[in-house]
Amino acid sequence: MKNLVMVFVLALTMVSNAFAEIRILTCEPEWSSLARELAGDKATVHSATTGLQNVHKITARPSLIAKMRRADLVICTGADLEAAWLPLLLRKSGNPKVLPGKPGYIEAANYVTMQEIPTSIDRSEGDVHPQGNPHIHTDPRNIGRVAQVIGERLSGIDPENASYYARRLVDFNQRWDAAIARWENEAKSIRGMPIVTQHKSWIYLIEWLGLERVAVLEAKPGLPPGAGHLASIAQQLEQKPAKVIIRAAYQSPRASEWLAERSKVPAVALPFTVGGNENARDLFSLFDETLRILGQFAR
């Protein structure tokens, strides 16, 4: 019996060593896409969530613990976005390489300037994040900043391929900067456009493109929109109409469509992240798609 177990363990270890490339687990698909850009074929990349999932509320499933167990690098947004499941995965996986503070652990929110940092923290205010709004990836300039960190860490974790990662980082930076310039140019037509959002997930996009958020459907973040609050927004929109009501692809369309019917302001789902709709296949097409959809409501 004991011998059998030993053989089994040995076999498993051999299987796991057969693939030399590093394993990257990301909490969100946008970081998976970024990791693929920067690590190329030197890594296998897996995202714990899909573009159609609400990352605030994910179950710490056995499959995720198994993925965490074998990860060489973990990339998450942080700022308590994954507080409901990430600490549990880290504690149960027995993998010291990816614990907070180790080179194998990246919290993207640590490398950008946070917005909407609450002045008071109280659960009666809903699902507030003490470190600020965690949805940083809706501004592509933040993704550029995180790319730098990932590039450096990859070289540290896998020094043999350091020059490869450095080349890919430079190449990505060039393409990304060009894309940002192109998007900013495209977005001139929507500058100042008044919008309504469902969850406070878009502040970084709004700041970047100079949009104007006139209302948020969730009166308190994370709590479903209440009927009274929706009615007051409908009234507000009568006086000062918005161009569009936006929600993330993973969110229930009910509230925004109810309001759209009442206020005659169109509602639309933005992909929010990679995989949020079929056109948003990587980071580049994510922003192409986001701007294409927003552009439809420019006038």
């Binding site: 919290e107 490398y111 300037t113 003490p130 470190q131 550029g144 790319a147 730098q148």
Partner: peptide
């Protein structure tokens, strides 16, 4: 450009 300072990165939660 990339290395924006972590102005707010205090740890919280668990």
């Amino acid at each position: 450009r990339p290395a924006a300072p972590a102005t707010t990165a205090q740890r919280s939660g668990q």
